[in-house]
């Protein structure tokens, strides 16, 4: 990989200052380090958040939201996210155990891989992504393939999840990468049902509004049977055609509802 200067600040303010002249944020590195090895990135300066203790941890706020520090690992969420069981289960099935001991929620969200699991949970839960500068609503955060509303050098400090009455994530595993071939997160709130789909669209995670309407009217696995999903804009690769993914969107939604 190209040479770079590694900085390891111990506070959010220190991280902001370290990024003042540009450079790239390093979370758990489980995507970025392989990317650096392939010389697909040449950041010059890499600012690790691994020693910023204030970015670690899980708590419940006064509104009952589960709040997870941006540098909290998937393993920590799997173990300590019991207040939101569907989220803890999702975290416990990302990658493999050694990856879960390093990968972080903030890193996953900032990367916004179109097949990553966390974006589906954040979008379906109507979570808030807090940064060092502002709060960003989930509906405004994910802006496209590997694209988010984050500015350069903006650090995800915390993700605040409203806890639904019931929720489940159904992941059709792409066995080699352990990402989702298609994953659907269904969250049922008193105000209605939200459905977020990952792994399917070329534009990244999205809400399936037709399913939300159908499930808000009748919350049962068969409520989505009559809906059709258009394959246009779906990912086409050796693991699945757009038509296959479109079919999986409906099937995985149904399975998620059944698991709620």
């Amino acid at each position: 990989m190209y040479s770079f200067e590694l900085r390891q600040p111990t506070s959010i303010g220190g991280a902001v200052r370290a990024l003042a002249d540009g450079g790239q944020i390093l979370g758990g590195g489980q995507t970025l380090i392989p990317t650096l090895k392939m010389r697909l990135a040449d950041p010059g300066v890499l600012v690790s958040l691994g020693r910023v203790d204030s970015l670690l941890g899980i708590c419940t706020d006064d509104s009952g939201r589960l709040c997870i520090g941006g540098a909290t690992t998937h393993a920590a969420v799997a173990e300590g996210g019991g207040a939101y069981p569907a989220l803890a289960r999702l975290a416990g099935r990302i990658g493999d155990p050694a990856v879960r001991n390093r990968g972080t929620i903030g890193g996953s969200l900032a990367n916004n891989d179109p097949a990553a699991c966390y974006p589906a949970a954040v979008l379906a839960s109507d979570a808030v992504v807090a940064t060092n500068a502002r709060d960003i609503a989930a509906d405004d955060f994910f802006t496209g393939l590997f694209e988010t509303a984050l500015d350069d050098g903006e650090i995800i400090t915390e993700v605040k999840f409203p806890v639904p009455a019931s929720a489940a994530y159904a992941k059709f595993l792409q066995r080699a990468s352990r990402f989702a071939l298609v994953g659907v997160f269904v969250a049922r709130f008193a105000s209605g049902v939200r459905v977020a789909v990952t792994g399917a669209s070329e534009s990244g995670v999205y809400r399936w509004s037709e399913a939300e309407t159908a499930l808000s009217a009748e919350f049962s696995p068969s409520a989505v049977d009559s809906l059709s999903v258009a394959p246009g804009g779906m990912i086409d690769d050796l693991h699945g055609s757009p038509e296959y993914r479109a079919q999986l969107v409906r099937v995985m939604t149904s399975r998620a509802v059944a698991a709620c």
């Binding site: 590195g29 690790s48 390093r102």
Partner: peptide, 15 residues
């Protein structure tokens, strides 16, 4: 005490 892949961690992160 936690398993990690040593090819995906910088040595300085283990300081």
């Amino acid at each position: 005490g936690r398993a990690v892949k040593a090819c995906a961690v910088f040595a300085a992160e283990a300081d």
